[in-house]
Design a protein around this nucleic acid. Structure first.
Length: 423
RNA sequence: GGAGAGAUGGCAGAGUGGUUGAAUGCGGCGGUCUCGAAAACCGUUGUCCGCUUUACCGUGGACCGGGGGUUCGAAUCCCCCUCUCUCCGCCA
């Protein structure tokens, strides 16, 4: 969430930048500022009252010691009044704080100045495109047919055992999964990321910390009995490592990578364009997370973008990079690059990675801060990206590499799969 | 699942009603000494919110797991919650 001081000091800037995200509820901002003014007035009065009670309590103590109980008793009456006053002011103060907080979380992050204007995915800006488009015959098969042909993934079995969107991977299909996971992890570790294996279930505080709660609750699977949530992405447990943490400057850069299963209910988004691997309830993803200082977080973002591009290059997949427009960005992001690979048989671009700089938006919510050499404390910047999400990579690999002999495995993966072709 | 113990500053660890934001040690930072370093010695050392100053300083308040209560006054007493540890049981 945004900070109140930012809204107070740079209100006009906030309003104009939020407009790029098509957020125009300026009344809400005015209301927050009004409530904050009131909060400060009430706090001042409350502090003054408490200061007086503290002084009286000290005096009562010394009066008792010198035997002046009558005077002490007088002061006790005075303090009882003050205490009641402070209690009411304290309640008022808490109400105001909660009210400010609840309004603050409704405001999205301000987009970076370079974010393109626009309302929908069609307004995203293609900033990079590379890789050769495969030249497939007219009868090229979509991945769901190839999956059946080579018996790689069993959706029916998943339906039986769990439900739609929970497939079984079998034989070379399973091995391909494992190969991709290891490949992605090794690449990240080589790039200086610390490998972390996170819990797949998180508590309420963590889900709140990264912003899944309160509004995106319906997208998560819950374990009601224990009040836990299945993670929709490793971003949640990894970023929450640093919740309520003050990092020393010399601990930076923080670079973590994690493989995890991801669980998403995808409520309401099921449709015919989500066949096969295009959308699942459970899938595998390797996620990279970095924590940076405000001064260099955009350099870090570019480095992460280059890392993801390197992966796709090694997998020999044609891809493009989009800079998301204001209307297509997530609530929390300040700048997002989406990576899409071309799925040659479906003849469509599939999103396989999203790399974002959240600036201090998540850090403010999580109270993640950095103390610099001079002892100054400021909110950290958080960044994360998929590197990469497996299902659509698999879909593209299968479709783009289909030949008469079978499905060719890219060189970089062969040492991980142990085979060069799926036939 | 049963029984017990505990939660204090970066860490360790005192503190059972009155200048305790909190002893002491370690660590960190600054300094003296040194060609330099180590050792020793001296000093310093949390976070948040106000006011002031829109740097610095100063000052008021809050915070000893979280919430509530008793009291003129609570880290210290009472209640609730959460978590941790130990032993037993079970178990990959």
């Amino acid at each position: 969430m945004l900070t109140v001081p930012y809204l107070r000091d740079k209100k006009e800037e906030a309003i104009s930048r939020l407009a790029i995200k098509n957020f125009n509820n300026n009344e809400l901002i005015e209301e927050i500022l009004r409530l904050d003014d009131e909060r400060r007035t009430v706090q001042q009065e409350n502090d003054d009252t408490l200061a007086e009670t503290n002084a009286i309590a000290r005096e009562v103590g010394s009066l008792y010691k010198s035997g002046k109980t009558a005077e002490a008793d007088q002061l006790k009456i005075r303090n009882a009044e003050l205490k009641e006053k402070a209690r009411l002011l304290g309640e008022k103060l808490n109400e105001l704080k909660e009210s400010i907080q609840s309004k603050l979380v409704e405001i999205p992050n301000t987009p970076h100045p370079t974010v393109p204007l626009g309302r929908a995915a069609t307004d995203n800006l293609t900033v990079h495109e590379e890789g050769a488009m495969p030249d497939l015959p007219a009868d090229a098969k979509p991945h769901w047919d190839l999956i059946t042909q080579f018996d790689l993934i069993d959706f029916e079995l998943g339906n039986k055992v769990t439900g739609a969107g929970f497939p079984f991977y079998k034989g070379k299909g399973a091995r391909l999964q494992r190969a991709l996971i290891n490949f992605f992890l090794d690449e990240a570790v080589a790039a200086g990321y610390l490998e972390v294996q996170p819990p797949l279930l998180v508590n309420e505080a963590s889900a709140y910390g990264t912003g899944q709660l309160p509004d995106k609750e319906a997208q998560m699977y819950t374990v009601g009995l224990d009040n836990l949530y299945l993670i929709p992405t490793a971003e949640v447990p990894i970023t929450n490592i640093y919740r309520d943490v003050i990092l020393q400057e010399n601990e930076l850069p923080v670079k973590n990578v994690a493989y995890s299963n991801c669980f998403r209910r995808e409520a309401g988004s099921w449709g015919k364009h989500v066949r096969g691997l295009n959308r699942l309830h459970q899938f595998d993803k390797v996620e990279i997370v970095q924590i940076a200082q405000s001064g260099n977080s955009y350099e870090v973002l570019e480095a992460m973008r280059e890392h993801v591009a390197g992966l796709l290059r090694k997998l020999e997949l044609p891809f493009r990079v989009l800079k998301l427009c204001g209307g297509d960005m997530s609530f929390a992001s300040a700048l997002t690059y989406d990576f899409e690979v071309f799925s040659a048989a479906q003849k469509m671009w599939l999103e396989v990675s999203s790399v974002s700089n959240f600036e201090s938006f998540q850090a403010n919510r999580m109270k993640l801060r950095i103390k610099d050499k001079n002892g100054q404390i400021q909110l950290a910047h958080t960044l994360n990206g998929s590197a990469l999400a497996l299902p659509r990579i698999v879909a593209a690999l299968l479709e783009n590499n289909q030949t008469n002999e079978g499905i060719r495995i890219p060189k970089a993966l062969q040492s991980y799969t142990g085979f060069e072709i799926i036939s």
